[in-house]
């Protein structure tokens, strides 16, 4: 084997080991205990349920609002498109506690929007709504970015042909582009959901209670130490594997039809 190949294999193996070892160790040490804990720990069950439904709702909102935006970015040329695209990536690059602070400025009780929502009975801080908005803020750009790429991969001439066959632009999108990009859109939604589930920084600034799994893990670590948090963290890792497996399956089929 050439020296270059050995070096490449070694470098790849080192990184893989670094990435997998901590997660593997966590599952080995706490996997069985985590599942047992899940059966008898009401607080953990509530945190998991809260995390799951808030992340799901944030993803639904992200898909509903992000799909038209992704279509515009993939199909339309307009002044400032590059700036809009760059701005969409901003939540991904700023530290997430900073994202939480930014959200607090706009949605906190002292802000105009937050004040109005609180008066209407929709408190942001310390409510599931705050968790949903924090998740949406940090994870929706992932969906929009993925959806934009999925739609860009569908040749626009399919839409053109559909329109010459009598479709309006909306019908052509619904009947042709959407089905052809569906795997990519679904994969992007899974990525968004997974990112929302794992969010900690923005949530803990905006909403400490009720607690999502990530916040609960942190609290137990700081309150009871490492031994107590390992089963909780292991349960979270095992659950997080589900969307990742789904994502791989979707990506295997992606591109078959375009």
């Amino acid at each position: 084997m050439a020296v270059g190949s050995v070096a490449t294999a070694t470098a790849a193996s080192l990184l893989l080991l670094f990435l997998l070892l901590p997660v593997g160790e966590l599952v080995v040490q706490g996997g069985a205990g985590g599942l047992e804990r899940l059966a008898g720990d009401a607080e953990l069950q509530q945190a998991l349920a809260l995390t799951a439904w808030t992340a799901s709702l944030a993803t639904l909102i992200g898909v509903a609002l992000g799909t038209p935006l992704a279509w515009i970015l993939s199909r339309r040329k307009f002044p400032g498109r590059t700036i809009v695209t760059a701005a969409l990536d901003l939540p991904l690059v700023i530290p997430h506690p900073v994202a939480g602070i930014a959200l607090l400025l706009v949605l906190g009780r002292e802000s105009a929007i937050g004040g109005m929502l609180a008066q209407g009975g929709y408190g942001i801080v310390s409510s599931p709504l705050g968790i949903i908005l924090a998740m949406l803020f940090v994870s929706a750009p992932l969906y929009v970015s993925g959806a934009r790429e999925a739609m860009a991969r569908v040749d626009r001439r399919y839409e053109s042909v559909a329109q010459t066959l009598g479709d309006t632009p909306w019908q052509a999108f619904r009947r042709v582009t959407l089905p052809l990009a569906s795997r990519g859109l679904l994969a992007s939604a899974v990525v968004m959901w997974a990112r929302a589930v794992s969010e900690f920084g923005a949530i803990v600034i905006l909403v400490h209670h009720p607690r999502t799994v990530s916040v609960l893990s942190y609290d137990r670590f700081t309150t009871y130490g490492l031994t107590e948090v390992i089963p909780v963290a292991a349960a979270l890792v095992i659950l997080a594997l589900l969307p990742l497996v789904a994502l791989r399956a979707l990506r295997r089929g992606e591109g078959d039809r375009t």
């Binding site: 040749d155 399919y158 042909v161 066959l165 009598g166 052809l180």
Partner: peptide, 20 residues
């Protein structure tokens, strides 16, 4: 006029059949 209001059929060299 919009594309779907022209009563024009278009056949591309690469066909662009709907793959789904």
């Amino acid at each position: 006029a919009p594309v779907n209001g022209r009563a024009v059929g278009l056949v591309y060299q690469h066909a662009y059949l709907f793959p789904h």
